[in-house]
């Protein structure tokens, strides 16, 4: 079942009189429940692609269909609503509010959907427990390790029960052990049925996904099915 469909997608950044084309016309589809890596070197346009897929940006031309809905031309507020209800983000630099507790950080997206404060707290607490941070609820990001911060960020990405989880270089700022933990959680989430879209420039990280979309100079270079993907649970051993 087609979930995300992209046709002839282009993106051109315009500043004053300089036009910088970033995406040159992409065509691909993503099915529900996929774990896909968007891989490419820096400047390839992979981040721009993720921003468009994650409703943070709009394409210059082409069509982006999400759940049969054309989202290419949505207004700012409609995009915000899509971000709020359909997707969750995990960033390389965590992007947690520094003075808020882990619990408050996780509950933050619920502020922008209709949800009572008790319900918010309860849900945030459950999610923190599910990523193994039940004992860190009242810690602020400064009191947490990098891996713990990223797990808080994952819990936050899940709080609105999104259809897609976007992870933008989620292991980029982590040591390898924490990186494995994060990848393990992402794989588990995918196993539970979540669609996961991972953006990375590292081949090794990308190979945790079931499919790799290799981007270069704003075009899809390769669309690879990963047969032997890395299994984070086994310390990155190839999955049989």
């Amino acid at each position: 079942m087609t979930f995300i469909s992209v046709k002839k997608l282009t993106k051109v950044y315009k500043t004053e009189d300089v036009e910088t084309p970033v995406l040159h016309g992409l065509d691909f589809e993503i099915k529900k429940g996929e774990f896909i890596s968007i891989m490419g070197p820096s400047g390839s346009g992979k981040s721009t692609l993720m921003h468009i897929l994650g409703f943070l940006d709009t394409p210059t031309s082409g069509k982006y269909t999400f759940e049969k809905k054309d989202v290419s031309k949505l207004s700012d507020d409609e995009l915000a609503e899509m971000r709020s209800l359909k997707v969750g983000f995990v960033f390389q630099s965590f992007n947690l509010l520094p003075r808020a507790t882990a619990l408050e950080n996780v509950a933050l997206p619920l502020l922008y959907v209709r949800s009572g404060s008790n319900k918010r707290t309860l849900r945030a607490k459950q999610l923190l427990e599910s990523v193994g941070l039940g004992h860190r609820l009242d810690f602020t990001p400064g009191q947490l390790s990098g891996g713990e911060k990223q797990r808080v960020a994952i819990a936050r990405a899940l709080v609105n029960e999104p259809d897609v989880i976007f992870a933008d270089e989620p292991t980029g700022n982590l040591d390898s052990k924490s990186g494995h933990q994060v990848m393990e959680i992402l794989q588990d989430l995918n196993d539970e049925g979540h669609t996961v879209i991972l953006v990375t420039h590292e081949k090794y990280t990308a190979e945790h996904a079931k499919r790799i979309l290799q981007i270069k100079d704003g075009l899809i270079e390769k669309d690879i099915v990963v047969n032997n993907r890395h299994n984070a649970k086994n310390g990155g051993e190839l999955r049989k």
């Binding site: 507020d77 915000a80 609503e81 971000r83 709020s84 983000f89 992007n95 933050l108 997206p109 502020l111």
Partner: peptide
């Protein structure tokens, strides 16, 4: 600025 960007990424509308 970063906090505002984050809030918007997490679903905050302009009115929020």
């Amino acid at each position: 600025t970063r906090e505002i960007g984050l809030r918007k990424a997490l679903g905050a509308k302009n009115k929020h």
